[in-house]
Computed example of a mutant assay.
Amino acid sequence: MQKTPKKLSVTEARQKIYNYCAYQERSHQEVKNKLFDYGLYASEVDELLSHLITEGYLNEERFAKAFAGGKFRMKHWGRVKIVHELEARGLTKNCIRIGLKEIDAGDYEATLLSLIEKKAAAMDEENPFVKRDKLAQYVIQKGFEPEQAWRAVKEVVPVKS
C-alpha cells in the first residue's frame, strides 16, 4: 500500500527545495516536479521557482554545462545521447548548445577511440566486418554520431586484404 505524501507548508517546502538545489545542479523541470510532489499549488510552485532563479539556486545554462560535462566524463556518453537527455528535461536549444561546449573536441575523439579499442579487445569475433558492425553499434548506442563512429571503427579495426 502506497502512502500519500504529507502536504508541506510553503516555508517547509522552501527550505527542502533550497537544500535540494544546493546539493547539485537541477533543471527547472526537476525542481517543479519536486515541488508538486511536496503538495504545493501551481501559484506557490511558480513563486518558489522565481525565487530560486533570482537567488541563483537554479540556472539552466549551469545545469546544462554540469550535465553534459559529467555524463561525458563519467559515463562516456556521446553528444547525441546528451542532447536527447537534455531535451527530455525541457532545456532550450541555446542552453543545450552552451552545455555541449563543455566537451572538448580532442577529448571527445580520444574517448571514442578508447571505447572502441577497449570493446574490440574484449570481443572474440574473428570476422572483421561483423566486429566492425558490433563496435559501431556499441558506440552509436552510447550517443556518438554514426559517421564519426564508423570512421573511428574503421581506423581501429582495419580489414586485411
Rank of each mutant, 00 (worst) to 15 (best):
K142L: 11
A136M: 13
I116M: 06
A105D: 07
Q137W: 05
V83G: 12
E87G: 04
V130H: 03
K101T: 09
Y38E: 07
I82D: 14
K65F: 14
G90N: 12
Y18S: 03
G70N: 09
E30C: 04
V157M: 13
H28N: 06
S50K: 11
W77K: 11
A66D: 14
K118I: 09
L40R: 09
E87D: 11
E60A: 03
K65A: 14
L52Q: 02
K142P: 00
D133P: 00
L48A: 02
V10K: 15
M1R: 04
L48P: 00
G90K: 07
P128N: 08
G90T: 14
I96M: 14
L8T: 00
R73E: 11
G78P: 00
T4M: 13
G69M: 03
E61S: 13
Q148C: 01
N94L: 15
R73V: 02
H76N: 15
K7D: 12
E126H: 13
F36K: 10
V45I: 10
T92K: 10
E25H: 12
D124G: 05
Y138K: 04
N127Q: 02
K131Q: 10
N33H: 08
E87I: 10
A110S: 14
C95S: 15
S9W: 13
W77D: 13
N59V: 12
F67S: 14
A120E: 11
V31P: 02
E25K: 14
K6E: 13
I96S: 10
R132A: 06
F144I: 03
L58S: 04
I98D: 14
H76F: 03
I82Y: 12
H28T: 06
E47M: 05
L8Y: 05
E25L: 02
K101H: 10
T54W: 04
K81D: 10
A88T: 10
A22G: 01
R79H: 10
G90Q: 12
T54E: 08
I103E: 13
V153S: 08
Q2M: 06
N33S: 13
E44D: 15
E55H: 00
K101D: 15
R89W: 01
R89M: 15
A64C: 09
P128W: 11
K32E: 13
N33P: 01
V156K: 11
Q137D: 15
K7L: 08
T11H: 11
W77Q: 09
F72M: 07
Y41I: 00
L91D: 07
K32V: 11
Y23M: 03
V153H: 09
W150E: 10
E25G: 01
A120F: 03
E145Q: 09
R79Y: 09
A110C: 01
E155W: 03
K7I: 03
K142F: 02
K154D: 12
G78M: 06
S161M: 09
Y108P: 06
G106V: 09
R26Q: 13
A64H: 04
L86S: 04
F144N: 02
A22L: 07
K3C: 04
E117G: 00
F67Q: 05
T54N: 03
T111V: 11
F36T: 00
L100R: 08
K119A: 12
L8M: 03
